[in-house]
Amino acid sequence: MTPSDASGEASAGASASRWSDLDRPPLNSAALQRSLVTGQGLWTSLEVVPATGSTNTDLAARAAALPEGAVLVAEEQTAGRGRLDRSWVAPARSGLFFSVLFKPGEAVPQERWGWLTLLAGVAAAAGISRAAGVDTALKWPNDLLVTVEGQERKAGGILAERVADGVVIGIGLNVSLTEQELPVPEAGSLLLAKAAVTDREPLLKAVLRSLEQWYGTWREAGGDPAASGLQEAYAAECSTLGRHVRAELPGGRTLTGTAEAVDADGRLVVRTADDAHEAVGAGDVVHLRPVR
């Protein structure tokens, strides 16, 4: 997401006086490490940095030297990226900006690693809903939605990047952004969705614990989305399904129809007006919009 001029000014001001905003305190790195890096679970390290360009870029560059379960969190991202290299920028400490490293190894065939993006969506939505007390839905393939004044708005996104022996998953979530700080009017935040909790530490812990649980179940099932329950869980949380959509594809082609399912490969199955079914992958879709 790209910020408005007002958001950019807020971000610049936050950087200049990083610890002055009492409503947006810094994360307690030591407490997070004690809680999550126990030596008995998935998470092997957790680092919080004041600012970086992109946690995904940084973690991907170091992935070969790190064990599975490394977590990198930034208080501020200056060059955060979404799908198709779209930008994601927000004021410092106004959200959660973090990346995690998964190395499924031989336990999961590489052709199933693409499900990690959808797994992260299911896990993040569950963790946010539990910790913040706000309903969180998924827009295929990688958006997190909350309801603000009766309208679904994008409050977060997920970006997956393959590295030599694993996958880096980045999650960005708008937590305390106000209307004036939103990058675009149709965006949202947990604050605007009237979440019961906007303290970032319990939110981060809830999402990471949910990620650990879902990843463990999926890995034990050999990455099988049906056997692990992931395919069913994603469909249950996906607000795209059942809606009339228009998918803009490379080359200027447009696919219009009803989104009916997510198949075993994580592709969106669209039923067209002539009752044909076409499956499209996340990498094939430039934009996906509802048709009213």
Rank of each mutant, 00 (worst) to 15 (best):
A12T: 14
A12R: 14
S17N: 13
S20Q: 09
P26D: 04
L27M: 02
S29L: 09
S29W: 02
A30R: 13
R34L: 12
R34A: 15
L42N: 05
S45G: 10
N56G: 07
D58S: 11
R62Y: 04
R62H: 10
A63C: 00
A64C: 05
V71Y: 04
V73D: 02
E76G: 09
E76K: 11
R81Y: 05
R81G: 07
S87E: 07
W88D: 02
V89Q: 15
V89M: 08
F97S: 06
K103F: 07
E106D: 12
E111G: 10
L116R: 00
L119Q: 05
L119S: 01
A120M: 11
A125K: 04
A126Y: 08
A126E: 15
I128P: 09
G133Q: 01
W140Q: 05
L144T: 12
E149C: 01
E149G: 10
G150E: 08
Q151C: 11
E152H: 14
L159A: 03
R162L: 06
D165A: 14
G172I: 03
V175Q: 02
T178W: 10
P183E: 02
V184M: 13
V197C: 14
E201C: 09
A206Q: 02
A206V: 01
L208I: 03
S210W: 01
E212R: 13
Q213I: 04
W214E: 11
Y215L: 05
Y215M: 04
R219M: 00
G222P: 07
D224M: 04
P225A: 01
A233H: 09
A235G: 14
R243K: 13
H244S: 14
V245E: 08
A247R: 11
T258G: 04
A261I: 08
A261T: 13
R267M: 00
D275V: 12
V286E: 14
L288C: 08
L288A: 08
R289G: 08
R292P: 15
